[in-house]
Structures are given as structure tokens and as C-alpha cells.
Simulated assay, not measured.
Amino acid sequence: MTDIKTLADRIEDLLPQTQCTKCGYPACRPYAEAVANGSADYNQCPPGGAEGIARLAALLGKPVIPLNSANGIERPRPLAVIDEQVCIGCTLCMQACPVDAIVGAPKQMHTVIAELCTGCDLCVPPCPVDCIALPPVTGTATGWDAWSPSQAAAARERHDRREARLAREREAAEARAAARRASSGVGTADHAAPDAHAPAPAQPGAAPAPAAEDAEAKKRAIIQAALERARKKKEELAAQGQGPLNTEHVSASVQAQIDAAEARRRRLGLVEDNPGDAPATPPPTTSR
């Protein structure tokens, strides 16, 4: 196992770290591990191109072979560009970006930070209004000629930071959910630990405290109004023949992100059981 781990590290060092999933794995690291243990071939990385295959072949002591066309083609590196006039601020592109190269907020125009974009194109499929273009920005240069080791190292660092942040957010959400269950569990009310965020019980004779739900209800109303505006905008675009064009053939990993966003919104009561009338928009967050 130690040998495989060491080999996986060396293989990962030779990958471009675009985190594009074209290799068939959710990120560069899982692909490196699969190559190391023999469950994946070393010609499945289109961003690395022929040069990347040659580097891996030299490391593995194997012959240079062509890029597997099932994983894509070697091409000039693209850059994601968001059309400000069409973007509806749904945040799905932000959730799909593996290196946090998109900034914005719900119902506000999003922007791609050009120097951080890896050209993975994962932001395109979930966009419900097809407002993201991917023009090539490296001329005729492809593979490692269009991507430097320093860019790869920076992309890996951003991806790892994002994964760590998402893990912290999941753990925090699970802890909050567990606390809510413990404080409202049937038969445990007398023994449950007090919720740190719950209002103090009213004292006899004291004036009723403001309902703790008021602020949350107001927040939900604001978000629901934003969703309604987004729905109307979507209908207007559809009437003009500019409706959603990128909602089919979404990869499993991106669809999982969209489904997770919908599940969070449903738990918060921000959507009805059938959320298809409005583009998916999670609770207000920003990405950096």
C-alpha cells in the first residue's frame, strides 16, 4: 500500500490539475490513484495531452500510447466567460467549479476570475440559460504547452482548499441537524441538551418574546421573491427562443451537486416538492 501511495503521489505530480473529470474520475488525485493501482490507464487525461502521456509512460516504464478518444481530445486551453446580460445568478456554476474560480451571489451576475480558471468546462452543463462560453485562449498551444507547472500547482492548491472547506461545511451542517434532532426528539424533551441558538423559555408573567422564526421567515420570503423573479426571467428567455439549452447530458458529478443544492433548499422550505418552475438557487452564499 505504501508503494502504491508513493506512486500515486508521483503520478499526481505529472497531471495538469485541471480537475476536469474527463479522465472518468472526480478529480486528478483519484485518477492518479487508479493509475497507480492499475484500474485505469495512463492515457485518459485530455488536458495533459500527448506530452502528459509521455511523462506518465516514462514514470511507469511503459510505451507511449495515443490519448483515449473516449475521454476527449487534446485542445487549446479554453477560458470560461459569463455573459453578463444573460446570467440569472443561479449560482450553479459556482457550485460546479472545482477550483472556486467563479465569484458572485444569488440573483447577482457572476464573474470568472480568468487567472484561476482551468478551462475544465464543468460550469457549462448546469447553466440553465446557456450563458457561459469557452473560447480558446492559448492559440494553437495544447496540453502542457498551454498549461504550466506553476498553474497546475496553484490549481491543485485551490482544489484542495475547496474540498477542505466543503468538508467543514458538511460537518457543520450535520452537527446542526443532529442538535436539532436531539432538541426536538420525541421522548427526549426532558433530557435533551438546550439548543445554543434556541430562544430562552418565557418566564411567567413576562411579555411574549418575538417569535424566533420571524427573521428566518423574512429571509425565506426574500429568497422566494428572488426565485420568482428568476422564474419569470426564464420564461421571458424561453418565449424569445433563448430558453435553457444545457440541461441535458449533465455529468453525474455535476448533477450530484445540483441535486444537493436542491435538497438543501427543500429542507429549508425554499422550494415546493416540484422545483422545476425555477432555476436551482441555494441559500445565499458567495464563493471565492
Results as ranks from 00 to 15, higher is better:
A196T: 15
R156Y: 03
A209I: 08
P244R: 10
A152V: 07
A252F: 09
I223A: 00
Q257L: 12
E248W: 05
R220M: 09
E169F: 04
R161L: 08
A221I: 02
H159L: 03
R267S: 09
A256Y: 06
A263Q: 14
A221C: 02
Q255N: 07
A196C: 02
V186F: 12
A225W: 06
Q242C: 01
C127K: 04
A225F: 07
G143M: 00
V129I: 05
R181L: 09
V271M: 07
A206R: 15
L245V: 01
P201R: 09
P210A: 11
D190T: 14
K219F: 07
L227N: 01
G241P: 04
V129D: 00
Q242W: 02
A202N: 14
Q240H: 11
A175M: 06
V137L: 09
A202Q: 15
D214K: 08
W147Y: 09
A172Y: 08
H249S: 03
H249R: 05
E228D: 12
A193D: 15
R267V: 01
W144Q: 00
H197N: 13
L134K: 08
L134W: 02
A211V: 00
K219R: 14
E228C: 05
K219T: 04
E174C: 08
I258Q: 05
R162S: 03
H197E: 15
A155N: 08
